[in-house]
């Protein structure tokens, strides 16, 4: 309940603190993280290929928005479907292997989609990205207005959060956590583990797809990076710093990550280097995410004063 109040407050206050575009990006990235965390936090599956679903949805929906002038809701629906279907294909190959093989496969299949996007320039624009994705008006609301679009994104984010909460509180959520805790026992008590992993993949892919479409409409372009490995790594990073152990972790992580990358990118063109340093610092010193980090800093400052 307290978490909900905090999130609602953040949704209302955020556009007064940062530009609406960045505020929108935070919630979009949070939706992306929610999808990953169903795999990473709940099922214990470290997918390093989430941008496959994010990017595929962005390209397909973006293309249709641009060339066929489809409506906003159709674009969202198509994005969710593309995210889910691409996750079904990738997941089918990945869930048959476990551990390190699984991680490597998600990355390798991500590369497959990346190189298709990279070379299929007539559709995707290759390295230049696919510009000119419109934000069509709906019910007389002009989404080109950044604030209107921010409200739209926020509502979808809250909806996603509610949906994800339903899922993790459902028997499926319990089963996935059971698989994370003990795969052999989950199989022995009667769950077909690969089937459930695949289901988690598809749901996570659908969330990624939704985030992908919203992202394309936010910036009006689908950059090649949207389907690249850095995007896959970023969402893992964001989820881990937020704390993969809770439903709200990816939301906190999205805040920290977008803030971090926005502020670093104005400092230096080679900011991925700083990001890499941040990754390593977090891993070596602040494992357990910001909640634990905050706790440590607080204790440290108490000791020094």
């Amino acid at each position: 309940m307290r978490a909900l109040v905090l999130i609602l407050a953040a949704v209302v206050l955020l556009p007064f603190i940062v530009r609406p575009a960045i505020a929108s990006e935070i919630w979009i990235f949070a939706i992306f993280g929610l999808g990953l965390n169903l795999l990473l936090g709940y099922t214990g599956l470290l997918s390093f290929g989430q941008s496959t679903f994010f990017g595929s949805a962005a390209y397909v929906a973006g293309y249709l928005l641009k060339h066929y002038a489809i409506g906003v809701f159709a674009a969202l629906g198509i994005g969710v479907a593309v995210g889910a279907i691409s996750a079904l294909l990738v997941g089918y190959l990945c869930v048959q292997r476990s551990g390190l093989y699984f991680i490597m496969l998600t990355f390798a299949l991500n590369q497959l989609f990346y190189f298709i996007a990279y070379q299929w320039t007539t559709v995707t624009g290759g390295e230049d990205g696919m510009p000119g994705v419109p934000r069509p008006a709906m019910l007389g609301i002009d989404f080109r207005d950044p604030v209107a679009y921010y409200i739209f994104v926020s509502v979808l984010f809250l909806l996603s959060l509610w949906l994800m909460k339903r899922i993790v509180d459902s028997p499926l959520g319990k089963i996935l956590q059971g698989i994370r805790e003990n795969e052999v026992r989950a199989e022995a008590v009667g769950y077909h583990v690969p089937r459930f992993k695949l289901l988690a993949f598809v749901i996570g892919g659908a969330f990624s797809g939704l985030a992908g479409v919203l992202y394309a409409m936010l910036f009006g372009i689908v950059p090649l990076e949207a389907i690249g490995f850095v995007t896959s790594g970023n969402v893992v990073f964001a989820t881990l710093i937020g704390g993969s152990g809770s439903l709200y972790g990816p939301i906190i992580g999205s805040f920290v990550f977008i803030w971090l990358s926005e502020s670093m990118s104005v400092v230096w063109a080679r900011w991925p280097l700083l990001l890499g340093v941040a990754f390593i610092v977090v891993v070596l010193f602040f494992r357990g995410g910001v909640v634990e980090a905050w706790d440590r800093i607080w204790r440290f400052s108490k000791r020094t004063t």
């Binding site: 080679r270 340093v277 390593i280 977090v282």
Partner: peptide, 23 residues
């Protein structure tokens, strides 16, 4: 640590080395 943190570490390293090459 889990594979997730090991991955993040080596991935961060890859980013750093990659950017250092450009620099």
């Amino acid at each position: 640590a889990g594979h997730d943190y090991q991955l993040l570490f080596t991935f961060g390293l890859a980013l750093i080395l990659n950017e250092l090459i450009i620099v």
